[in-house]
Design a protein around this nucleic acid. Sequence first.
DNA 1: ACCTGAACACCGTTCAAGT
DNA 2: ACCTGAACACCGTTCAAGT
Lengths: 187, 187
Amino acid sequence: MPAPSRTSVERIVAAGRSVLSDAGMEGLTMQRVASEVGVRPPSLYKHVANRADLVRLVVADIARETRELLAAAAGEGDAADDARAMALALRGFAHRDRHAFEAMFSPAADAATIDSAVYATAAEPILEVAARLAGADHALDAARTVTAWAAGFLTMELAGAFHLGGDLDRAYDYGIDALIAALRKPQ
Amino acid sequence: MPAPSRTSVERIVAAGRSVLSDAGMEGLTMQRVASEVGVRPPSLYKHVANRADLVRLVVADIARETRELLAAAAGEGDAADDARAMALALRGFAHRDRHAFEAMFSPAADAATIDSAVYATAAEPILEVAARLAGADHALDAARTVTAWAAGFLTMELAGAFHLGGDLDRAYDYGIDALIAALRKPQ
DNA sequence: ACCTGAACACCGTTCAAGT
DNA sequence: ACCTGAACACCGTTCAAGT
């Protein structure tokens, strides 16, 4: 007499995603997720291999979310406007959901190995603007430079590394403007 | 009959530093550190408040190390040469000791709250070159932009986020050149 | 004044037994 | 075919008892 599944990977990942948002990576425990889903911890192992696997799935979800966010920010402006809008959208996300942002952009000991395909997902819209901004030949380098800067800035901002004061909104603008100017292909 | 201390904070932090290097943040356990130091885990609590405290001290050590490293890289070249040399020195460190680098530049759930003074320590040599490069008025913004980019690039490189291939050495050069050009004060 | 063993709470994970 | 309780290993941390 087979027992019908009382949950599913989808529901487990969704629960994990929401636990992560409000308890952080450290609070993302199998026990908490199980109780959120209405099941006992051992049952989760019928649907995911282990905690690392669950974390990987949750991070992949966040990557998809990030891609949507960035794609939506790139409107019909020129390349520089779109790049600026995407940078601001990413900062908004980092502020709105710091745990999700950190899970994606800092290699917590927990996240262990993240599928590199996950990054490719989120990187698509960035590559597209980078190509328009820097030209096809430098699209990859330009995309990496901008992404590295934004990820680094926001990670450090969230970590409280920018303690020397000054207006961080302005500092972020300063950075994005400097990068756009530097990467822009000769007209 | 008071018992003479069989260890010290210094020795504990040094042990923690070396355990971190070869086992990562996740392998940095009180048990491992205790055994490295020749003592039982409960004894550590006579010298550090708890694991978070130990992690904080280890990270502060890494920050000092990083400052030395950066200061040594800034030779007698002009501002652009020094900035380049410092960026390369940081990358060398990230490759040589990835766990130490990650402990400093990614807010592991473990690191919890890092003293912001720790960042100030490591930032000093960067601020100094930034002032020479971008002028005193923009020193802080320029230092933040360069640091954010380098931290982001190296974190992503270590995480395997740059899977799309291409020469990463060249990509790093591309980034630092672009940033130097963008931040350089009008001559 | 520091060290220790014993103990506790909490975690991930396995597994035999239920349905 | 999935769920469960019981169990195990491992972790951080506390504390009374040793010296």
